[in-house]
Design a binder for these strands. Structure first.
Lengths: 161, 161
DNA sequence: TCTGAAACGGACTGAGCCGTCCGGTTACAG
DNA sequence: CTGTAACCGGACGGCTCAGTCCGTTTCAGA
């Protein structure tokens, strides 16, 4: 790939991350292109549709989440491991409108199974330790993550076992 | 007002309620008109802009919330009064995408002060009774309402004093 | 330096939407 | 029954946005 192409691709992805995070999924491709300092034709050459561009941004964010979840598993204390990830994920949602608005789309992304697996382990461990309420599945518990973007500690209090 | 005009106005408001609740604020005026069985010119004669139509729908929903809050105040038990309203409000958000997406717009509506006043009383009473945590203001507590649309009891657990 | 392939970006198209307008229709009073 | 004022709805204009296309520019290897 030519150097200028790579540079522009990086700029586009960076701009798209910022734009979607700040303005949600309805930000126009032109806005992204403007922020990246390229014409919007350039954006469409790299990403065949706006949706593909959004997917790239979401995938990047999910990658980060997977790392956070796996880091939580290395924590000795089961509750601290779970709560740390929960808080971090909640903050991720708080800083990124697109993540919230495109929740459904996220479910289709390839890194989702990985994230789910790590999240299951975090929840299972904390439940087995008696630190986390047992009347909810992992999936249900993580439905609360977007909700927790504002006052995570209140929700975590409600989740204690 | 002529009888047919009144009938169409009712239909339009009803259709708008359903459309905005199901599809959020981005539903087109044409969709509302189609569901109401009128041309979209008829909608714009009653409501000068789409925003005005949305306001009418939101106002209707807020009116319902005010009644719910005032009903909560008649409850003897302070916690039950608060929690009942909290749950009902959360369900209102769960059944109505527009309420969530147009949160900011709701704040500008004339019935908001009334709702706020009733909500303040509910919270104050429950806090004074020691049933509700005291480290959050009423406003902060009700920021959690949309979040609670999924698992209200978990959030209520977290809110107990 | 030279050259051709790759990349760029802005003009263009078509679709969807908001809001206007006017010719035709309908309800209702007399 | 009839005249008319109110009402209806679809055609239309202007706008924004996604996605395409092609003339022009830039890069990188020979």
């Amino acid at each position: 790939m030519r150097a200028d192409a790579q540079r522009n691709l990086d700029r586009v992805i960076g701009a798209a991350c910022e734009c979607f995070a700040e303005g949600g999924v309805d930000v126009s491709v032109d806005d992204v292109a403007r922020r990246a300092g390229v014409g919007h034709g350039t954006v469409f050459r790299r990403f065949p549709t706006k949706e593909a561009l959004l997917d790239a941004v979401l995938a990047k964010e999910l990658d980060r989440m997977v790392l956070l979840a796996q880091a939580g598993l290395t924590e000795d204390d089961a509750w601290r491991g779970f709560a740390g990830f929960f808080r971090a994920a909640a903050e991720g949602y708080a800083c990124n409108r697109a993540l919230l608005e495109a929740k459904d789309r996220c479910r289709e992304l390839p890194q989702m199974p990985l994230l789910q697996k790590a999240a299951d382990k975090l929840v299972g461990r904390a439940q087995k330790a008696g630190a986390l309420r047992r009347d909810m599945t992992a999936e249900e518990i993580f439905e609360l993550v977007p909700a927790a973007s504002r006052f995570p500690d209140v929700i975590l209090d409600g989740l204690r076992g």
